[in-house]
C-alpha cells in the first residue's frame, strides 16, 4: 500500500517534470498553426533574442526560489546596473568612455546590491520578500538619482554590439544568454553551493544540522543572483542604447512567471535552471503568439499573472504547507 502510494507519487512527480516541456511543444505547434513563419530560422532567432535578457535574469532568480525565498528586487538592480554601464561607456551625459571595461563594473554593482539583499535578509532576519522589496525600491531610486530623472543615450557602438552584434549569424545577446545558462548549470550541478541550495530549500532545519553554512550560502546566492541581474542590466542598456530607471519595467513579473512556469516550486527544493529555460521560452512564445493573434500588448501582464497562478497552484507541494499566509 505504502509502496503503491510512493510509486504513484513518483509517477506524478515525473509527469510534473515533463509538463513544462510538453506545454512549450504544444504552444509552438499551436502558434505555428496560426502563422506558418513561426518555425523559420529567422523567427526562431528573433524569439531567442527576445528571450536572452529574461534567460539571464531567470538564472539568478531560480537559485533564490530553489532556496524557498523570493527576490523582488530584480527591477531595481537592473535599473542601477543599466544606468551605471550607460554612464561609463561613451554617452551624452558624462565624459567617461571606458568601453567594455564598464561591463564588469556594472555586473559587480549588481552583485553588491545582491549582497546587500543577502546581508539584510540574513543578519536582520527579515523575510526575503520584504527585504528585496525595500532594496528594489531603493535601487530604482538610486538609478533615478544617478541620472537626476534624465535619460542617457549610449554612443559606444562596440558596447552596443554586446546585444546587437552577430557571431555566426546569431545575435551576441543569445550567445551571452547561453553562456549564462551554462555557468548557472555548472554552479547547480558541479559545486557544493549548488547542492546546498537544494538542501536548504528542501528542509532548512535538517540542512543546518547537517552542518551546511546556511547564512553564508544564502548571502552568496543573493549576491550571485545580483550578478546575473547585473548582466541583464548590461544587456538591456546595450539593446536599447540608453539607460534610465524605467528600463527594467515588467522584468520582475516576467522573471517570476518564467521560473514558476518552468516548474521550479516556490516552496523550494524542487526545480532546476534548465526548467527556467523552458519557462522563459514558454513566456516568450506565448507573448509572440499573442502578438501574432493581434492581442493587445497590455493584456500580456494579465496573462502572465494567470500563468503564475496556474503554475504555482499546480506545483506547490501542499503536504508541506501547514497554514498558508
Amino acid at each position: 500500500m505504502a509502496l503503491a502510494v510512493r510509486t504513484s507519487k513518483a509517477g506524478f512527480a515525473k509527469w510534473r517534470a515533463w509538463a513544462p516541456l510538453a506545454v512549450l511543444a504544444g504552444l509552438c505547434i499551436l502558434v505555428s498553426l496560426f502563422n506558418s513563419n513561426f518555425l523559420t530560422v529567422s523567427n526562431s532567432l528573433r524569439l531567442l533574442n527576445t528571450a536572452a535578457i529574461p534567460l539571464v535574469l531567470s538564472m539568478g532568480a531560480t537559485f533564490i526560489i530553489l532556496m524557498g525565498s523570493i527576490d523582488l528586487s530584480v527591477e531595481g538592480v537592473i535599473a542601477v546596473t543599466a544606468v551605471t554601464v550607460s554612464l561609463l561607456v561613451a554617452n551624452d551625459l558624462t565624459g567617461y568612455d571606458y568601453g567594455l571595461w564598464a561591463v564588469p563594473v556594472a555586473i559587480i554593482a549588481g552583485g553588491l546590491l545582491g549582497l546587500l539583499n543577502g546581508v539584510l535578509h540574513v543578519r536582520l532576519k527579515t523575510p526575503s520578500f520584504m527585504t528585496t522589496l525595500g532594496v528594489g525600491f531603493a535601487g530604482v531610486g538610486i538609478a533615478t538619482a544617478m541620472l537626476g530623472g534624465q535619460t542617457v543615450r549610449i554612443s559606444d557602438q562596440t558596447f552596443r554590439a554586446l546585444s546587437l552584434g552577430r557571431v555566426g549569424g546569431v545575435p551576441m545577446a543569445i550567445w551571452i544568454a547561453l553562456s549564462a545558462v551554462i555557468v548557472a548549470y555548472i554552479i547547480q550541478e558541479r559545486t557544493r553551493i549548488g547542492r546546498w541550495v537544494y538542501a536548504i530549500g528542501t528542509d532548512e532545519t535538517t540542512a543546518r544540522q547537517a552542518g551546511i553554512p546556511i547564512e553564508r550560502t544564502r548571502i552568496l546566492i543573493f549576491s550571485l543572483a545580483g550578478l546575473f541581474y547585473g548582466l541583464g542590466g548590461v544587456l538591456s542598456a546595450a539593446q536599447f542604447g540608453q539607460g534610465h530607471a524605467l528600463i527594467s519595467q515588467g522584468r520582475l513579473f516576467t522573471t517570476v512567471t518564467a521560473v514558476v512556469v518552468g516548474g521550479t516550486s516556490l516552496s523550494g527544493g524542487v526545480g532546476s535552471v534548465l526548467n527556467s529555460v523552458v519557462g522563459v521560452l514558454i513566456v516568450v512564445v506565448l507573448a509572440n503568439g499573442m502578438v501574432l493573434m493581434g492581442v493587445e500588448p497590455y493584456i500580456q501582464q494579465g496573462v502572465q499573472g494567470l500563468l503564475i497562478i496556474v503554475a504555482v497552484a499546480l506545483s506547490l507541494d501542499r503536504s508541506r504547507l501547514d497554514v498558508v499566509k
Binding site: I70, L72, F129, F253, V256, V260, L266, Q301, G302, Q304, G305, L306, I308, I309, V312, A313, L316, R318, L321, V324, K325
Partner: peptide, 14 residues
C-alpha cells in the same frame, strides 16, 4: 492555497 505575496503579485498583474 498560494502564499499571499505571490497570489497578490499575480492578481496585481491581472
Amino acid at each position: 492555497r498560494i502564499p499571499s505575496f505571490i497570489a497578490t503579485l499575480a492578481a496585481g498583474g491581472l
